[in-house]
């Protein structure tokens, strides 16, 4: 690439003019926020790991009694695909394909995001039936502190996608709209990354031990 990279992640490129240069500050700021958020998740993971022992389980149901790996696998696939579709939206923006394709890809991402949340809620309700509730043990407290926190992030992401689609309709692809979609993309991929951690540590890790 000939032009300098202004910030980590996908750069819009100088042909986007102001949006490209504005992105340097706001995207950098958003990265910093994500790092801070990562610490929160990191500590929740650490808590989960320290609680995953007989003392933490307190004689309550264990991972094998409550985790439904089929459903979790489906959630994983849906979320991973949503990351790809968001990537398509970002590329459509980067290569100036207009707001039509961007909206389309965002719509698909939103649908997948909502699908993920539906599957997750289904999973949660099954877990509640199996007695894996936070009031049962420290282990389940740490699960319910971590996984729904990620779910809440996905929910916020869905809300954000919806707002961006509305704002694209109102304001078109103004520079600030572009940089917001850029940040939304970082957020969405970040949630994927966290989910990979959840899938391996929370589900596979606990089931394998």
């Amino acid at each position: 690439m000939k032009h300098p990279i202004l910030h980590p992640g996908m750069n819009l490129g100088p042909h986007h003019g102001q949006a490209h240069y504005d992105a340097e500050r706001v995207t950098f700021g958003f990265w910093v926020f994500l790092m801070s958020d990562l610490i929160i998740f990191g500590l929740m993971f650490a808590t989960y790991v320290t609680m995953a022992n007989p003392t933490g389980l307190a004689g309550g149901p264990g991972p094998k009694d409550a985790y439904d790996l089929t459903n979790v696998y489906a959630q994983t696939m849906v979320l991973l695909v949503s990351s790809v579709t968001f990537g398509m939206a970002s590329l459509a923006m980067r290569f100036e394909r207009g707001s039509g394709p961007i909206t389309l890809w965002l719509c698909i991402t939103l649908a997948l995001g909502l699908g993920f949340l539906t599957l997750e809620l289904l999973d949660f309700s099954n877990m509640v039936e199996a007695g894996a509730v936070p009031s049962r043990s420290g282990f389940w407290s740490s699960f319910w502190g971590l996984v729904p926190l990620h779910g809440l992030h996905v929910f916020v992401g869905c809300l954000w996608i919806s707002i961006m689609m509305i704002q694209m309709r109102i304001f078109g692809l103004a520079p600030v709209i572009k940089t917001r979609i850029l940040r939304l993309g970082l957020f969405w991929h970040f949630l994927d990354l966290i989910w990979i951690g959840i899938f391996t540590i929370v589900y596979l890790g606990a089931l394998s031990s």
Binding site: T47, T50, M51, T55, G56, L57, A58, G60, P134, S135, R136, S137, G138, F139, W140, S141, S142, W144, G145
Partner: peptide, 17 residues
């Protein structure tokens, strides 16, 4: 969460630490 939602992160009983 412990105080409002009956979680057990830090309670004496049920595996809190």
């Amino acid at each position: 969460a412990d105080r409002y939602l009956d979680f057990h992160f830090f309670t004496n009983d049920l595996g809190g630490n």
